[in-house]
Design a protein around this nucleic acid. Sequence first.
DNA 1: CGGGATCCTTAAGGATACTG
DNA 2: CAGTATCCTTAAGGATCCCG
Lengths: 142, 142
Amino acid sequence: MPASKTKGHAAVCPISNERVELLVTEIIGRVADKWTMLILEELEQHGTLRFTEVRKCVPGISQKMLTQTLRQMERDGIVLRTVHPVVPPHVDYELTELGGCLGEAFCGVWQWAEKNFARIEKSRAAFDKRAEKAATKTAATR
Amino acid sequence: MPASKTKGHAAVCPISNERVELLVTEIIGRVADKWTMLILEELEQHGTLRFTEVRKCVPGISQKMLTQTLRQMERDGIVLRTVHPVVPPHVDYELTELGGCLGEAFCGVWQWAEKNFARIEKSRAAFDKRAEKAATKTAATR
DNA sequence: CGGGATCCTTAAGGATACTG
DNA sequence: CAGTATCCTTAAGGATCCCG
């Protein structure tokens, strides 16, 4: 169990630690988002993509969410957005180096999900069965 | 750049691959959640915690979200919930082995956030400055 | 084509009150 | 103590239209 998480930072950096932790937490909250992760994954796999291409790669995402998420990622320095001043417009998206690092960091989570999805499904089924039993029992009691 | 993400699964497993991908995506969506990650982190760091203790460790979480998230995690087999039949009630939460693995997988993301939060802040500031400039320019034009 | 602006609907999430 | 149940508010997110 690797111990160097947020707490490990304390000894190193003297600047207000609650602030750092809040910041890190906020970043985690921003980055640990469904669409962000999916877009990240696609850009990592395909390299550079245009707006419409990203949209095709991420099924189910609305144009609004795509724009919004890409903007956030651009703002955070995860994605590089290049506008080619031609008509009709041509906009390219690609990961920055920072974004690439994040992609690699998330890789472990993807692998975890891939490796364990069957276990998770089983656990869910078992949980639901127990819950159902409990429910019928409660119904019988009253 | 490790290439074995969802796509890498294709060659190994013959069962409907879209289904697997959907499942994995769904799991990612579930697990890549702010509260889930924070609770995971606390349980990994403290071992076993009671309901109220978790609540204290995760500032800002409402009791509703805490219950809800813990239930989801229990259902997914990430967290083990132990009820001691005493009065007043005593309920313990701890990570399962599966949960521990997930914690380790997420560790990379935490480290990424810790390492790069300054860069991200700078990127955001720069982005906002550019946006502001663009806005005043637009305002001047009309 | 790549969005911005607007409207509208659903759902996430907080506050409060009650219970075994 | 560790929840469940209810209400209520905010905001996420989809659909639509339009524009450079």
